[in-house]
Structure formats: C-alpha cells, structure tokens
Design a binder for these strands. Sequence first.
DNA 1: CACAAAGGCAACCATTTGGTTGCCTAATTT
DNA 2: AAATTAGGCAACCAAATGGTTGCCTTTGTG
Lengths: 103, 103
Amino acid sequence: MIEANIYKALGDPTRLEMVKRLASGDDYTIGELSTNLGITRQGARKQLQVLVSANLIRLTPQGRETRVDLELTTLTTAKQFIAAIEQQWDQRLAALKRFAEEE
Amino acid sequence: MIEANIYKALGDPTRLEMVKRLASGDDYTIGELSTNLGITRQGARKQLQVLVSANLIRLTPQGRETRVDLELTTLTTAKQFIAAIEQQWDQRLAALKRFAEEE
DNA sequence: CACAAAGGCAACCATTTGGTTGCCTAATTT
DNA sequence: AAATTAGGCAACCAAATGGTTGCCTTTGTG
C-alpha cells in the first residue's frame, strides 16, 4: 500500500494548490510558495514537508533560499495507478458484454 | 479545490484496497467488501462512506444486501487532473529548452 | 414462527492533522 | 557592524480521522 501516501499528500486543498503552482511554469522558493495560501509561513512549511515526505517535491537549499521542484515521476506513478484500475474495469465490462452476447 | 476530496478519499490504505477490489472484476456487497481488511465491519463501513461522499463508489440496496459499484468517471477526473499537471510541466521544460538553444 | 444474515446508527476513544505563536540561526544588504 | 531576509524548530491547540463496541431494524430461511 505504498500508493496511498501519494494520494493522501494530494488530498488537501493547500497542498494541491502548491502542486498546481509548481506545475504552472514559474520558479519557486519556499517563501514564495508559502504566500497567498491563507495560512502562515510556518503552516505552509508543514504542508510542504508532507509533499516532500511523499516524494512529490524536492527541496534544494541555495544560499539563504531554498528552491522547490516538482518530482514528476511520483505524479506519474499516481496517474498510472488510476489508469491501471480503469483498465481492469474496462476489461471487466468487456467480459460482461461477451457473456451477454453469447447464446 | 474540488479535486482534493477525491485524492483524500484514495489516500488511505483501507479505502485504496477497497477500490482495487472493486476494480478487480468481481461483484461485491458491502459485507463482502468489508472482510479481510483487518478492521471491523463497522469500521469498514465508515471508510466505505468516505468513498461514497467522494463519489468514487455507488451503493444500491437490493433486498437485504447492498451492492457496491465503482464510479469510474470520478477516477478518470482524478487521472486527468494529474495528466494536466504533467502537461503543464512538459510545456515548461520545452520552453526552457528553447530558451537554452536560442543565441 | 423463530432465528440467522445483512446492514444501519450512535457513542466513544486515541491519534493524526492542520494550523497557530514564539523564538532561533544563517545568509545577505546597506 | 547593524539590520533585514529566508528559513528552521518546537510547543501547543482544536478539529478531523480511523477505529472500536453495543445495540437496533429489516430481510430472508429452517
């Protein structure tokens, strides 16, 4: 059940917003990413840590700032897991269809 | 921030296991789905309710049993959201590449 | 009819979560 | 050197979460 952690990390409005921002194409430091979220810097930092623990982002200190980068591979894993479920489901429906059509 | 709820619902090992089972192709009643999860029937039922609230499954009472069905469209929404993020990211990388290559 | 099966509902509990305030350190600016 | 900026860390708090036990209702079966 390793996958659940990824979804859990995405399952919070603040953290999802952070991921959206990171994907938007701009460069972000921890400080920049922590503004306009409706919570304090320290609160935002805690959420950021959850994303780090789930391997959804990577932090790289540079001087007194710290760069935040998206870990695309983890997101891809999450997507593929859902795709696999969909595929199982589709196969099931196809089997039902075949069953209904045979005489 | 409507999407966060979906991920939140998937972000628990018990609930993810339920979704996996439902996708596996077998038919499930609430009772069947609530066994071998390491928790009580009532505990499982509470988790099932979370999946219902997130529109990931649908319950249809039939006599004294209740059928559980996967709502594939919701899962697809979740997948597509991740795909959109990936796409944004890819475009960003492409832009960076173009920038690096121009003289 | 009597009883077993499938499920619902509520109260309760410990832990986790999402957030806060307060203070400290290290790197820059002026 | 002094002040500012970027960030870290810990204690604390209320609410949500994940689970439990106990009991009740309805549906089907001997």
